[in-house]
Simulated assay, not measured.
Amino acid sequence: MRIEYFAKFREAMGRSAEDVALPTAVGSAGMLVEWLRERDEAGHATFDDSVLIAVDDVMAQADTSLDGATSVALFPPMTGG
């Protein structure tokens, strides 16, 4: 699966994207974020409950299934004006 990081997540993770083989236990978008938190120190310091997630270019919720998905984009909440 391709994981893309945007804005402050890109800076914190030190890369804009990566290809990963997810553990079989990671079945939803929320589980992916939790796995990234637990995977390493950068993820632990970076991700919290305010992460916005898109699965295959469609905005998703924590319970959105990753079954068959090829990409996930993670970005912080944004404000406009």
Rank of each mutant, 00 (worst) to 15 (best):
M1E: 13
M1V: 07
M1Y: 13
R2A: 00
E4L: 04
E4I: 01
F6D: 01
F6G: 00
A7D: 03
A7L: 06
K8W: 14
K8I: 13
F9Q: 03
R10D: 00
R10T: 00
E11G: 00
A12F: 13
M13T: 00
R15T: 02
S16K: 15
S16L: 05
S16H: 12
A17L: 10
A17F: 10
E18S: 01
D19H: 07
V20I: 11
A21M: 13
A21G: 04
A21P: 02
L22N: 06
P23M: 11
P23S: 07
T24K: 13
A25W: 03
A25H: 15
G27R: 15
G27N: 04
G27H: 08
S28W: 10
S28I: 07
S28M: 10
S28H: 07
S28Q: 08
G30H: 11
G30P: 03
G30V: 10
M31A: 15
M31T: 12
M31V: 05
L32R: 13
V33D: 03
E34N: 05
W35P: 01
W35I: 11
W35E: 10
W35Q: 05
L36S: 03
L36N: 07
L36Y: 07
R37Q: 12
R37P: 00
E38T: 12
R39Q: 06
D40H: 02
D40R: 02
D40E: 11
D40N: 10
D40I: 09
D40M: 02
D40C: 01
D40A: 01
E41F: 03
E41W: 09
E41Y: 04
E41D: 09
G43S: 04
H44W: 09
F47K: 10
F47D: 06
F47C: 04
D48C: 01
D48G: 08
D48P: 01
D49F: 06
S50V: 03
S50N: 12
L52K: 09
I53S: 03
I53E: 11
I53R: 12
V55N: 05
D56E: 12
D56Y: 09
D57K: 11
V58F: 05
M59T: 14
M59W: 15
A60N: 10
A60G: 01
Q61S: 05
A62M: 08
A62E: 14
D63K: 14
D63C: 03
D63H: 14
T64L: 09
T64D: 06
T64H: 08
S65K: 14
L66I: 11
L66C: 06
D67F: 07
D67L: 09
D67E: 14
D67G: 04
G68V: 08
A69M: 08
A69G: 04
A69K: 13
A69Y: 10
T70P: 00
T70N: 08
S71K: 03
S71G: 02
S71V: 01
S71P: 01
S71Y: 06
V72G: 10
A73W: 12
A73M: 12
L74V: 02
P76L: 13
P76F: 15
P76R: 15
P77I: 13
M78W: 14
M78N: 02
T79E: 11
T79F: 11
T79W: 14
G80T: 11
